[in-house]
Every structure is written in C-alpha cells, then in structure tokens.
Simulated assay, not measured.
Amino acid sequence: MNGLKSTLLTAVLAAAIGAAAAWGAMTWAARKDQPVDLHHIVHEQLDLTLDQDRRLTAIEAAFAVRRGTLEAEVRTANRELSAAIAENRGDTPEVRAAVEHFHGAMGQLQLATIRHVFEMRAVLTPGQAEEFDRAVVKTLRADAD
C-alpha cells in the first residue's frame, strides 16, 4: 500500500507541476507575443477607419479588465492547488477540487480570449478579417511549435 500512495503522490505532484508550468508558459506567451503582435497588426497594418480604431480600442480596453480578473482567478486557483498538495500530500478530494478549480479558471481565460478575438474580428472588413485571421493562426501555430 505504501508503494501505491507514493505512486499516487508522484502522479498528483507531476500533474500539478505540469499544470503550473503550462499556465506560466501560456501567460508568458499571451503577455509577450500575442497582444503585441495582434495589436500591431490591427492598428498598424489593417488601415482602419477612425470608427474601427475607436471601436477596437474600446474592445481591447474592456478585455484588458476582463483578462486581469480571469488571470487573478487562475493565480488564486494555483495557490489553492499548491496549498492542497502541501496539506494533503496525496490524491484527496481537496486536491482534486483544487485541480478542477484551476482547470476551470484556465478554461474561462481561454474562452474569454477566443471570444475577444472574434469580437475584434467582427469590426473588420472582409479583407481586413482575412489578414487578421492569418495573424491569429500564425501566432497560435508559433506557440504550438
């Protein structure tokens, strides 16, 4: 039974470390690459009208607030997960609940980001949207490599 507990603890710790590393990498990539690249493309390369620029600026400002709230929830869930692992040292309902909270918070951040991208796209003309789509796909593929 001791071997099983040790194996379970190792698996839970590995999952938690992997989740924390994935969150860190995603947050770093989102802050470093995606907003700067998309912002540059949208505002510098798409030849926006004044109305489009105004609307997109408002969309980006609203999302910055929303993203901050969601990122704070991810950080909270990450702290809960680390505390649950430190306190329980095994695969317990508390650890599982903390993992679920973390996954839920990350999922909400990802969904909000995708909705934001589509909200921005809706402001663009069909030609601008094609260039925007290429930039989004290129950014996502670069992150996958």
Rank of each mutant, 00 (worst) to 15 (best):
T49W: 01
L50P: 04
K138R: 15
I114S: 00
G68S: 06
R31W: 10
A105D: 03
Q128M: 01
R54Q: 13
L38H: 01
A16W: 10
V12H: 00
V117Q: 09
A112E: 07
A22E: 15
Q110A: 10
R141V: 12
R121D: 02
Q34M: 11
A129C: 04
D37W: 07
D91V: 13
G24V: 03
A22D: 13
M26E: 11
D91P: 03
I59H: 10
L4D: 12
A30H: 08
T69L: 04
V95I: 04
E71I: 05
T7F: 10
G18S: 07
E119C: 03
A122F: 00
G18K: 03
M26T: 10
A144P: 00
L13N: 13
G107C: 07
A112C: 00
Q108D: 15
H116Y: 08
T92P: 07
A62G: 07
V42C: 04
E100V: 01
F132D: 12
K138S: 15
K32D: 10
T27Y: 11
P35E: 15
A72W: 02
D37S: 13
P93T: 08
I59V: 14
L109W: 05
R75W: 02
A15R: 12
R54S: 14
H103Q: 05
A58R: 15
R55Q: 14
W28I: 06
N88H: 12
R96C: 08
A98T: 05
V117S: 04
P126V: 03
D143K: 14
R54L: 11
T57R: 07
A21S: 08
A142L: 08
L48S: 00
V65K: 00
Q110H: 03
N88L: 01
R31D: 12
A15Q: 11
H101S: 11
Q110N: 06
T27L: 09
L48Y: 00
K138Q: 13
A129S: 14
V65T: 11
H43P: 02
L13S: 14
F63M: 04
H103R: 12
D143L: 11
D47G: 03
R96Q: 14
E80Y: 05
E73Q: 15
A15D: 14
H103F: 14
E73N: 13
D133M: 03
Q128C: 01
A105H: 06
R89G: 14
R96S: 13
D33M: 09
R31L: 06
L111Q: 12
I85F: 09
S82T: 09
